[in-house]
C-alpha cells in the first residue's frame, strides 16, 4: 500500500480490526468502513441478502469495542413502544414506571429494518437523529456512544417497507457485504462458521475509550483544498445527468466526517483526497438515485463521478 509513504501513527483500534478480520473473512474494507462510520459518529445501514454475515459483523464490533449490545428483529407487527419502551403501572409505588426498551443500549442492531411499518421505522430513526427518546411525555437521553447498525434486505422482496430517501439520508454509510471471495469462503466452510467464535471474543477496548477516539477523529486536519474537492464532488452530483438529484449538505458534512475517520484509521492526522474517494461510495450511493435503471446509484456511477471531478 502506498499509504506507507506518509508516516502513520499506531492506532489503538488496530487490534480490533485484526481480530474482526479473523471473524468476518475477506471483508477487510467493509469492516474498516463500518468502524470509520462509528468513529465519525454516524449510523450504518448494511444492505444485503440473508446469510452474508450482517449480524455477525454488528455483533463482532459490539463485543470487540466493549459496547453494550442489543438486537431488535424488526417484523411487520413491531410497535414503536417495542423499541423505545413502555410505562407500566407499579402497584407498590402506585404510579407509572418506565420500562426502557431495547434502544437504551450502546450498539443497537436493527435487523431487517424494512420489515417494520413506517411508523415503527420512524420511531427508531428519530431516536437515531436526536440521541434521545421521548415516551410518555418524558424525554430520556440515550447512552453515549449510541450507534445503530441497521440491516435491510434488498428492496424487491415481498412484504417490506423500503426506507424513503429522507430516512436513508440519516445513515452516514450504507454497505453491501457481498459474497465472500473463494479463498475466504473455503476457510469459512472448513472452519464450520465463525459465529461460534463470537462468544470467545473479549473486549479489546474500554467502553469509555470510544468517545475519546471520536474526538481524535474529529480533530483530523482538513485543509482548504480538500474542502474544495468535497465541494466539487457534491456540485458534480447536482449537475451530472447521471443522477436524479444531487447530494445534500448533510451528505457533504458526512463525507468529510467519514474521510476524517478513514484517514485516522490509516494513522494520518490529515485527510487526503484518497480518503474522500475511499468513503465516497459508502456515503453517497444510498443518497443518489441513478437516472438510468431504477434504484440507487451503482458503484460504476460513483466511479464515473470520481473520474469527472478534478482534484483541486
Amino acid at each position: 500500500m502506498p499509504t506507507t509513504l506518509l508516516a502513520a501513527q499506531p492506532r489503538p483500534l488496530a487490534p480490533v480490526l485484526t481480530r474482526a478480520d479473523d471473524i468476518i473473512l475477506g471483508k477487510s474494507k467493509e469492516i474498516r468502513l463500518a468502524v470509520a462510520c462509528l468513529l465519525a459518529g454516524g449510523h450504518l445501514l448494511i444492505e444485503d441478502l440473508p446469510g452474508l454475515g450482517k449480524t455477525t459483523l454488528a455483533e463482532t464490533l459490539a463485543r470487540l469495542l466493549g459496547l453494550r449490545f442489543a438486537r431488535i428483529q424488526f417484523t411487520s407487527d413491531l410497535l414503536p413502544a417495542d423499541i423505545t419502551g413502555v410505562a407500566i403501572f407499579d402497584r407498590e409505588q402506585s404510579g407509572f414506571r418506565f420500562l426502557p426498551g431495547p434502544i437504551f443500549t450502546q450498539l443497537l442492531l436493527a435487523d431487517e429494518i424494512n420489515r417494520a411499518t413506517p411508523k415503527t421505522q420512524s420511531a427508531l430513526l428519530e431516536a437515531m437523529e436526536e440521541g434521545q427518546v421521548t415516551a410518555e411525555g418524558e424525554t430520556r437521553p440515550l447512552p453515549r456512544p449510541f450507534f445503530v447498525i441497521a440491516t435491510q434486505n434488498p428492496i424487491h422482496q415481498i412484504g417490506t417497507f423500503p426506507l424513503p430517501e429522507s430516512q436513508l439520508d440519516r445513515f452516514l454509510m450504507r454497505l453491501e457485504l457481498g459474497y465472500p471471495d473463494q479463498a475466504a469462503e473455503r476457510r469459512l466452510l472448513v472452519s464450520g462458521g465463525q459465529r461460534q467464535h463470537l462468544d470467545q471474543l473479549t473486549p479489546l477496548l474500554e467502553a469509555s475509550a470510544l468517545p475519546r477516539l471520536q474526538q481524535e477523529v474529529a480533530a483530523v486536519h482538513v485543509a482548504g483544498p480538500l474542502i474544495d474537492y468535497v465541494q466539487a464532488l457534491i456540485a458534480a452530483t447536482r449537475q451530472a445527468t447521471a443522477f436524479q438529484h444531487g447530494l445534500s449538505p448533510r451528505a457533504g458534512l458526512g463525507l468529510l466526517a467519514a474521510a476524517r475517520a478513514w484517514a485516522w484509521l490509516a494513522g494520518h492526522d490529515m485527510a487526503l483526497p484518497d480518503d474522500v474517494q475511499a468513503v465516497l461510495p459508502a456515503v453517497a450511493r444510498h443518497r443518489l438515485r441513478s437516472l438510468q435503471g431504477s434504484g440507487h446509484a451503482s458503484a460504476e456511477d460513483i466511479a464515473g463521478l470520481i473520474r469527472s471531478v478534478a482534484i483541486p
Binding site: 502506498p2 483526497p273 474517494q277
Partner: peptide, 15 residues
C-alpha cells in the same frame, strides 16, 4: 496523471 487521480494513487502506479 489524470486530473482525478490522487497523488498516492499516482505514486502506487509509478512504483
Amino acid at each position: 496523471c489524470a486530473s482525478w487521480e490522487t497523488p498516492l494513487a499516482l505514486a502506487a502506479r509509478v512504483a
